[in-house]
């Protein structure tokens, strides 16, 4: 019986293409989302992920609505429209941060609330809430297509390359933006590149974990990692370890317990975070971090 269970899962895995798609996309997302999450957390921009995931939904709702009247659109992956909206939203947000230079945090709620409003309009135009849309909200393993796998695969390679080549600039900008500017780094362009790749990762992640849960896969592993990491490189190591563990355990447990995979991934990430916090508390370090931060 015990040996039968994993065997059954592997059987099913090799039989159904959609499970393979979901698994491989999950592995890529489990890498990308926490890596971007590290930068987002240390730059104190965690709310940006929520704004960008909601505008991705707006894009998808727009696609579903537009595909009803323009049949040629229906043959395209709605993900592309989601990505286009997400990238456009990210650029608008960067612009807004400059317009409201004294109230930079205002950029996030402006994009967040207006994209929800716009999304609701498109959803009602697209004849209300259908099953498709629900899958985008909370993620669906069944919905992952080969096309998604390729798209997200290309994005993973592209973004990994960008992150490797701009690692030092991104680190410097995250640690001390003013000093980075004085050193002659093209901070404006690097910020744009950063927010655009964040938008792409968010759009890629939502097939598996869904729009409502994307931000947790970015933020939770990084939040756990910051409790343990001594160096910036370690931040990535722990974050990716936690992200991949969450995806793999989340998918497997969802399969056996017949629960929502996106939800199980996030619950696993949360359990890891709680474990890390308890460990830190037991080691007496959590207190130190709490003291350190407001002190400055």
């Amino acid at each position: 019986m015990i040996t039968g269970v994993p065997a059954k899962m592997l059987d099913v895995f090799f039989t159904y293409e959609f499970l393979q798609n979901a698994f491989f996309v999950g592995i890529m997302i489990g890498f990308l989302a926490p890596v971007l999450g590290v930068f987002i957390v240390v730059r104190k921009l965690a709310l940006i992920t929520d704004a960008l995931s909601h505008i991705t939904l707006t894009g998808i709702a727009f696609h579903l609505f537009a595909a009803q009247s323009a049949a040629w659109l229906a043959s395209f992956n709605p993900l592309y429209m989601g990505m286009a909206f997400s990238v456009a939203g990210s650029l608008m947000m960067e612009k807004l941060r400059n317009v409201y230079s004294a109230y930079q945090e205002l950029a996030v709620p402006i994009i967040l609330s207006s994209s929800i409003g716009l999304g609701v309009v498109f959803i009602s135009l697209a004849d209300g809430f259908n099953n498709d849309l629900f899958n985008y909200l909370f993620g669906s393993v069944i919905a992952v297509t080969r096309n998604d796998l390729w798209t997200i695969g290309i994005i993973t390679v592209l973004i990994t390359a960008i992150l490797i080549f701009f690692y030092k600039e991104l680190l410097f900008l995250s640690f001390d933006e003013e000093q980075a500017k004085v050193s002659g780094l093209p901070s404006k362009w690097i910020n744009i590149v950063f927010i655009v790749i964040t938008a792409l990762v968010i759009a890629s992640s939502m097939r598996i974990v869904g729009i409502m849960l994307v931000s947790s896969l970015m933020v939770l592993p990084a939040a756990a990692s910051i409790q343990l990491a001594k160096s910036f490189k370690q931040m990535f190591l722990y974050a990716v370890l936690f992200g991949e563990t969450s995806v793999v355990l989340g998918l497997i447990s969802a399969f056996y317990l017949n629960l929502a995979p996106g939800g199980m991934i996030v619950v696993t990430a949360l359990l890891i975070l709680v474990t890390v916090l308890l460990y830190r508390k037991a080691a007496g370090f959590a207190i130190q971090t709490v003291r350190r931060t407001p002190n400055m």
């Binding site: 000093q179 160096s231 931060t293």
Partner: peptide, 17 residues
């Protein structure tokens, strides 16, 4: 931000970026 997970070496390396 003193909570930033970065080593002394990494901070100094920024001066060369």
């Amino acid at each position: 931000n003193a909570g930033f997970p970065v080593t002394v070496f990494e901070v100094v390396s920024m001066g060369l970026y």
